[in-house]
């Protein structure tokens, strides 16, 4: 057997005669593909795993969720009841994140706040997705007149400055967890609906959809089985990016006095309550909520970016 030399360096005479015999053809060899074939989701997951920043974000989010669930339970302190004599204690072994103006344990309150902030974020995203998929799905799938009317409505809603409406609603309804979520989703679903519609419009003309239509498959089934799974990529990305923007909006509303009312705490309430404290040197009261708001937004943003790259088949190399 000849070594793996550059073939052109091999003199013809060197090649043994017995190699000039017919070779068995085998089908498997012919069809050997140039890359292992993976399903869309497997492939996306493989790419996401290689994106360290996005994976860091994912890990952070999991930790945050776990801490939001178990943090307040594990802590010996009550989130809403403080000891006034222990006002403004710096972080110590006793109070890991220190105490605030009412002598409440900031560590406990941070995780209590995480519950509310994450709840607001996830609920807003979930409601946006539900309305967005229904609205966008129908609009995109039906097309024609229906689509025209539904899109005009979206266009009008899109023009309304969303936080102004939220503020207005909260002023009237009075701030509470429920009203904040309602206010955030009243116009929030519009972006999602646009994305879903665009995706559905694109995919509904693909042959496999036309084929199942020609077999007389029911519309609802086509939407559920044929369209939705293939529009999931952008929807998931948009969802991932909705969560941080809802968390931010909640923090912003707390800041202008429309947040969750005390003694309950969200990160936004905690941060806006302690903006003054930082100037008097009690930095920890602001630092921890601010840090976790930023960290959460960061984690969701990088995860969203990573998902976008991973789920976009155009980027498949």
């Amino acid at each position: 057997m000849l070594p793996e030399k550059n073939p052109r360096d091999v003199a013809i005479e060197e090649i043994p005669d017995e190699w000039f015999t017919w070779r068995e053809q085998n089908k498997e060899e012919q069809e050997r593909l140039s890359r292992p074939s993976l399903s869309y989701w497997n492939d996306a997951w493989r790419r996401l795993r290689k994106n360290y920043l996005a994976m860091t974000g994912l890990v952070f989010i999991i930790i945050l969720v776990l801490m939001a669930i178990f943090g307040p339970i594990l802590s010996p302190y009550d989130a809403n009841i403080g000891v006034l004599s222990k006002q403004y204690q710096p972080p110590s072994a006793e109070h890991w994140f220190g105490t605030d103006s009412a002598g409440r344990d900031v560590f406990t309150r941070t995780w209590q706040g995480a519950r509310i902030s994450l709840f607001v974020g996830f609920m807003a995203a979930l409601i946006d997705v539900t309305i967005g998929i229904i609205w966008g799905g129908i609009s995109g799938y039906k097309g024609g007149r229906t689509d025209n009317v539904m899109m005009r409505i979206i266009e009008v809603l899109y023009g309304i400055p969303y936080l102004l409406v939220v503020i207005l609603l909260l002023v009237v309804l009075g701030p509470s967890l429920l009203t904040i979520i309602i206010a955030l989703t009243v116009t929030g679903w519009v972006g999602m609906a646009r994305i879903v519609r665009g995706q559905v419009m694109q995919i509904k003309n693909y042959e496999y959809i036309l084929a199942s239509k020609s077999f007389g498959t029911k519309t609802s089934r086509i939407i559920r089985k044929g369209l939705l799974p293939n529009t999931m990529g952008p929807i998931i990305v948009q969802m991932t990016l909705t969560v941080p923007s809802a968390i931010f909006a909640e923090a912003f509303l707390s800041f202008i006095g429309l947040g969750i009312s005390s003694p309950n705490a969200s990160w936004g309430v905690m941060a806006s309550d302690s903006l003054g404290a930082i100037l008097s040197g009690n930095w920890w009261t602001l630092f921890f909520p601010a840090f976790f708001i930023s960290l959460t937004m960061f984690a969701f943003n990088v995860l969203g970016d990573g998902l976008q790259d991973a789920l976009d088949p155009k980027l498949r190399k």
Binding site: M1, I15, E18, Q30, S34
Partner: peptide
């Protein structure tokens, strides 16, 4: 058949697996 994988191209003639006249030599050099 399909063309070969250019990540690790064959040492021999790349058409060998699809060639109706392939010989042992084709796959080697």
């Amino acid at each position: 058949g399909t063309p070969p994988d250019l990540f690790s191209p064959p040492t021999g003639c790349p058409f060998t697996p699809r060639c109706p006249f392939a010989m042992e030599v084709c796959n080697k050099v």
